[in-house]
Design a protein around this nucleic acid. Structure first.
Length: 496
RNA sequence: GGCGCAUUGGUCUAGUGGCUAGGACGCUGCCCUCUCAAGGCAGAAAUCACGGGUUCGAACCCCGUAUGCGCUACCA
């Protein structure tokens, strides 16, 4: 059988971390097996679904690099096109396709119209809860006569359609990840499959869509396990062949609760804004619930495709820990070529007003020389302005603590050092890293100073901070003029 | 309440009857060094949730218990 899998988010918000991992596992499974990966939007919740959410999901998927073979895609005009032979891929556009199956179930007596109102049902449910009975539907409308139905309809009463659950036996299925799962059918009631609006409920729509789209493996979050028996009943009633089910465990927040807003960002695109690389997020997410037996940590994208297997997926929920993600992000940044890194860094630095927007080729080359100084220590792209600001900016800031520690401990001596160094720097032939280094080292030696006694104050005076790239390397880039100006500034402002 | 799923260092995990329980993140220390990182080395950290079985032998198999999470809608 051809492998066809789908990621089927409901557009009620952004693509979140949990959804992204589900999408990723589907994607990896499809690509590994040369199957098709389908994106289907489950927008049968007329109240909560929005078009912006559809767009946001598409953008999130795109950023992660998960491309799909069938489904909605963004065209050049920013509108949504539906691509593929099993469409439409928006559930709301498929409603007409469902009628045939609804009729079939009703005429075969496997489903029936129910005229109970929401109010009535809510009351009954509350009562059941109070009496500690399972809040199951009481089958009021199960055996309505043709007449009664006509009568209700004449009165203008709205109806839903319920599936008639025999309540006999068990529903058993072998989950690819969780193993055999057994449910007693009598625990389930006659659940609604079509709303009074005529729109099918999720559990019904998925079954129909997965069947019509010839989905071979349903890979989804394990919060759907309890829905599966309902769906299997429907498959059987409709005479459809069952797909393989694979339920992947949830992602939890740091406190072990279901990941939600209060744990911070959960939207994939928010991770973009926080300075993460998509390949880092993908790698991290892949590893959250899946592992190889050799515990490999870093995977190239195609390596992920090659090695991924549903059978190696874990069955227990995992806590999302951004410490490891941050580490991974650093790994991926370090791995970039200078050109790639520059391409990524440029817009961020421009956004922070550290680089102008109409940068020319020569300026770009200069920027590269700066970027190479710190690439290896970048963890998040958002660190970039802080890391490079002191070179890119004209004016720098100094902080009190450093001034106290490195200027004012021994002000006379330090002032003297800075003055001498300034003079030497002015005299230096070529203002290069090599020349600067020998100048500094010779000066320290001649004056019986430890190198740090010279390097530290100069670092503070010229960069405004005590961390940063190699002193001589950045001085060369900073240039003689700026370096001397900054020392002058320090001399006049911090040594009164 | 009922049902389902889960439970290996702080976190992610390897492991499927015999191991000093392996790796990664994080943490600590050392080396490198002009600082910060990166890198290298070393280390601390797990009575494998608990209690019973089965077995010569159990993290691994079985049964309970506890805890966490999920479902129990005209949400998906």
């Amino acid at each position: 059988m051809a492998i066809r899998v789908r990621f089927a988010p409901s557009p009620t918000g952004f693509l979140h971390i949990g959804g992204a991992r589900t999408a990723l596992y589907n994607y990896l499974f499809a690509r590994h097996n040369n199957g098709k990966f389908i994106l289907r939007i489950e927008d049968t919740d007329e109240v909560r679904s929005t078009e912006e959410s559809v767009l946001a999901i598409l953008q999130g998927m795109k950023w992660l690099g998960l491309d799909w073979d069938e489904g909605p895609v963004l065209n050049k005009d920013g509108r949504i096109d539906l691509i593929g032979d099993y469409g439409p891929y928006l559930q709301s556009k498929r409603i007409g396709m469902y009628q045939k199956y609804i009729d079939k179930l009703v005429t075969e007596g496997k489903a029936y119209k129910c005229f109970c109102t929401t109010d009535e049902l809510v009351k009954k449910r509350e009562l059941a809860n109070k009496e500690k009975r399972p809040p199951k539907y009481d089958n009021t409308c199960r055996n309505l006569t043709e007449e009664q139905i006509k009568n209700f309809e004449k009165q203008g009463k709205k109806s839903v359609i319920r599936f008639k659950n025999s309540g006999e036996g068990q529903t058993v299925f072998d989950d690819v990840i969780k193993g055999r799962i057994v449910f007693e059918n009598n625990l389930l009631d006659d659940f609604v499959i079509v709303k009074s609006s005529g729109v099918p409920i999720y559990n019904f729509a998925v079954v129909l869509d997965d069947y019509l789209m010839k989905i071979s493996h349903v890979i989804r979050g394990d919060d759907h396990i309890s829905n599966t028996p309902r769906q299997i009943m429907l498959y059987k009633a409709l005479g459809f062949e069952l797909p393989q089910f694979a339920h992947i465990p949830m992602i939890l927040g740091s406190d072990g609760a279901r990941l939600s807003k209060r744990h911070g960002a959960t939207s994939v695109l928010a991770y973009k804004d926080m300075g993460y690389l998509p390949e880092a997020l993908v790698n991290y997410l892949a590893l959250l619930g899946w592992a190889t037996s050799d515990s490999q940590q870093l995977f190239k994208f195609d390596e992920l495709i090659k090695k991924f297997d549903l059978k190696d997926c874990n069955s227990s929920a995992a806590i999302f820990d951004d410490k490891k993600l941050i580490w991974m992000n650093g790994e991926y940044i370090r791995e970039k070529s200078l050109d790639e890194f520059t391409k990524i860094a440029l817009p961020i630095l421009q956004n922070a007003n550290l680089v102008k927007n109409d940068i020319n080729k020569e300026e770009l080359e200069n920027l590269k020389k700066i970027l190479i100084l710190e690439q290896e220590k970048v963890k998040l792209l958002t660190d970039l302005p802080e890391l490079f600001g002191f070179i890119l900016k004209d004016k720098i800031e100094y902080n009190e603590i450093d001034i106290e520690k490195f200027f004012k401990k021994d002000p006379e001596k330090t002032k003297n050092i800075l003055e001498n160094i300034k003079v030497e720097m002015a005299k230096l032939n070529d203002f290069t890293t090599e020349n600067l280094e020998s100048l500094f080292r010779e000066y320290a030696e001649k004056n019986n100073l430890k190198t740090g006694q010279v390097f530290h104050p100069v670092r503070l005076a010229t960069s405004g901070k005590m961390k940063g790239p190699s002193l001589f390397h950045y001085l060369e880039i900073l240039g003689r003029k700026k370096a001397i100006e900054r020392i002058d500034y320090s001399l006049t402002n911090f040594f009164k």
